[in-house]
């Protein structure tokens, strides 16, 4: 269910960001979503297909979704740790950290338009 809201939000966000004239030429949307985002790419693709039923205007726009793994960077020793089992603790110095540098993204990171 929340995938539907997320698709609506993406489209509303793009409408805030770009002129309608430009959106008419939109041809692909690239998302980057971290594993912490609670976004399941497969479900998001389904919700996106469903969106076109009520909003046929964007039916030719392709959605690409890239998933990213979880990484933190220690504020103390700068070491970058691949987080396993949601243990937010530096591999190097064992200090806890909330400094997520990857894996939390919910980004529209590229939009393609036809000329």
């Amino acid at each position: 269910m929340h995938e539907t809201s997320i698709v609506n939000s993406i489209m509303r966000t793009l409408e805030m960001e770009f002129e309608q004239e430009k959106l008419n030429k939109m041809k692909a949307i690239h998302l980057k979503v971290g594993i912490l985002s609670n976004i399941e790419p497969r479900l998001l693709h389904n919700a996106y297909s469903a969106y076109h039923i009520t909003n046929p205007g964007y039916h030719h726009v392709v959605l690409h979704i890239e998933s990213t793994e979880l990484k933190i960077q220690c504020e103390v020793c700068n070491h970058i740790t691949d987080v396993k089992n949601y243990r937010f603790i530096c591999d190097n110095c064992e200090r806890p950290s909330k400094n997520v540098i990857q894996g939390e993204e919910m980004l529209i990171h590229k939009v393609e338009f036809d000329d």
Binding site: S9, T13, E17, V62, I108, H109, V111, E112, D114
Partner: peptide, 28 residues
């Protein structure tokens, strides 16, 4: 999803690299 690469054929596609939170409308 299946990627249709019309980009190479036309050579005129425009790309905007962004970093927009996809829940920006909500966060606004």
């Amino acid at each position: 999803s299946i990627e249709k690469s019309t980009k190479a054929a036309r050579g005129t596609a425009q790309c905007e690299n962004t970093n927009i939170n996809l829940l920006k409308a909500n966060d606004f």
